[in-house]
Design a protein around this nucleic acid. Structure first.
Lengths: 326, 326
DNA sequence: AGTCGTTACGATGCCCGTAAGGATA
DNA sequence: TATCCTTACGGGCATCGTAACGACT
């Protein structure tokens, strides 16, 4: 039995039982995979794949039973490699962060700056996407960690850590009538056309919920996936922007006026997700702590060790309570 | 990284950091191991062993951290092999039982007979030894399961399942004065020289405890490791035998008389031990159930899954309650 | 002097990639 | 016909065992 053989089997399954595609993604030849899998099957004395003529149709019962163990072996091998890398050179390696526009544009820059200064030999990659894409990238191992406010909890195999609490603000052009309001109210805001996030980004549903609970009609004239686009239309006078508070840039947004809306909406929590059963490099633990100081290495390891779904939920709630407001 | 390299490292450690011995036990050459380990260290970028000139002195910090993972990979590989073997041919394979004389001679024969009839293609091995040896053989994987009354609980990495409860009897030559006693008492027994087990076998301490609690002097003239030896001296008139009840053989021991002593001593429990994190072949589960019908496959798997020492203890006690008297 | 690990070297055999063959949709 | 897996084959490379070397106890 060879590790390569296990990898091949797992990749063929990942590629939907297609050896050709697996060969492509593993940068090797079809016959190589075909032969190795056959050799493995012969050594084990059981077929892993059911073949109809010259096509793979599905896993055999033995195959289904075995694949889980294959995956566990390969996961453990990965742990070995990462552990060794940390001893070999704790400050060299790569870090891939999957995140949303909001985090990448407004929250991460200062932390990233700190991080690259401390770890100049770590090559950093930021993948931007929707919360769902982010979660998937992390679950499949393409990214080391995910940072987002939504949809991370949906993925099996991810370990979730709440980082910070945030709320929204209203952005208007200078001199807008809303500025004169003594204390901003939902009623006042609802008088104007609203520009805000699309659903699935930045916990949009919280906004709808707030208006609906007060029985207010509100007119969303435009939705966008990120605050920069929203701000552009606010500048054009299309309506009032309803965005995350951290999306306000003191220097670049001097032509806009910000009205805090923290008292109008339920706070949202931005979380960080990592794949379970993975060893993180030392510098990743450090990054996490830079990003969210209350999450120490021990906190992460504790959360990773919890396997029961209910306990996970309980631990998550406990951490939510500790998350500070940004 | 190759599985063979991981095996080599683990074996070298098992052999007390001696490559030469590891080569011997793995049936390969020293240079092969030396080179493979060096290749692994190079690939991982860290030294696993500390070398003083040309001698291995100890594990490096990285080595200590990594070896645990190596072992886990190899354990999982073993699970794969056993699982595959069960699909390939569920009734072919081998079963190695490590046990004491008492079990091997008096308890196992009937079960073994049943078993070989049901599984003629399983090659059966019985290793006899002291409880400590038995436990060690099982912990190191030399034996699939251990059956004994003592010392099994001392080994980390073993999963313990209570099988049955048993007690002792007094064996005397025909016509011995003790036979006339209406109900056997410790006082009566203590009047005669006693022949029984050595310490460390068949829960000998229970015997001492019973006499001491009653404040009785008792005279052990001879101790032996197994009941056959004890019976021989009883036949020679050296004293009365105090042995496990199941050591009485109706046919061969017709010249001896048996007096039950179940009311005089605390019952002992014979247990079965298996190594943790191991997949057992289907027929081994069947053997266990033949041996101890209340232990089903699910019972074993449940006990194996419990990792916390205290919970293990609790589960064990619970099973002890279910163990029947033989 | 003996034990033990490393280096050197030649032969074996495994594995990879290319090319061709056959089966299915 | 297009897709896809298998078989066949030749070249390259890793690995194994023997033998010699060097270091430590």
């Amino acid at each position: 039995m060879k590790l390569r053989q296990l990898e091949y089997v797992v990749e063929v399954i990942k590629q939907g039982l297609n050896i050709t595609n697996a060969a492509g993604s593993l940068h090797t030849s079809q016959p190589g995979i075909s032969n190795q899998i056959k050799a493995l099957e012969e050594e084990l004395g059981v077929s892993i794949f059911e073949r109809n003529g010259k096509h793979i149709t599905r896993l055999t019962r033995a195959g289904k039973d075995l694949v889980g163990h294959f995956v566990r072996v390969l996961e453990e091998v990965e742990v070995i490699e990462k552990t060794a890398a940390d001893y070999a050179d704790p400050n060299r390696g790569s870090l891939t962060i999957a995140t949303t526009h909001t985090q990448a544009r407004y929250v991460l820059p200062s932390i990233i700056t700190q991080f690259v200064e401390k770890y100049p030999d770590v090559s950093l990659h930021i993948h931007q996407g929707t919360p769902t894409q982010i979660a998937e990238m992390t679950a499949t191992g393409m990214a080391d960690l995910a940072i987002a406010t939504e949809a991370l909890e949906l993925f099996e195999g991810l370990c979730l850590l709440p980082c910070y609490r945030w709320n929204r603000c209203v952005m208007v052009p200078k001199g807008h009538p809303l500025v004169k309001e003594h204390l901003l109210t939902l009623e006042a805001v609802s008088q104007y056309p609203i520009i805000t996030y699309v659903f699935g980004v930045a916990d949009r549903s919280v906004i709808n919920k707030a208006f609906l609970e007060r029985g207010l009609d509100f007119n969303v004239v435009l939705t966008a996936a990120d605050a920069e686009v929203i701000k552009t239309y606010v500048r054009n006078g299309l309506g009032v922007g309803l965005v995350a508070r951290m999306a306000y840039d003191r220097k670049q947004d001097q032509d806009l006026q910000v009205l805090d809306a923290g008292h109008l909406f339920e706070a949202s929590v931005t979380s960080l997700a990592i794949r379970r059963n993975v060893r993180l490099r030392d510098y990743i633990y450090d990054f996490i702590e830079m990003f969210s100081p209350h999450i120490k290495r021990a906190t992460v390891e504790e959360a990773m060790a919890v396997n029961d779904t209910k306990l996970q939920q309980a631990l998550f709630e406990e951490h939510v309570a500790k998350a500070k407001t940004r």
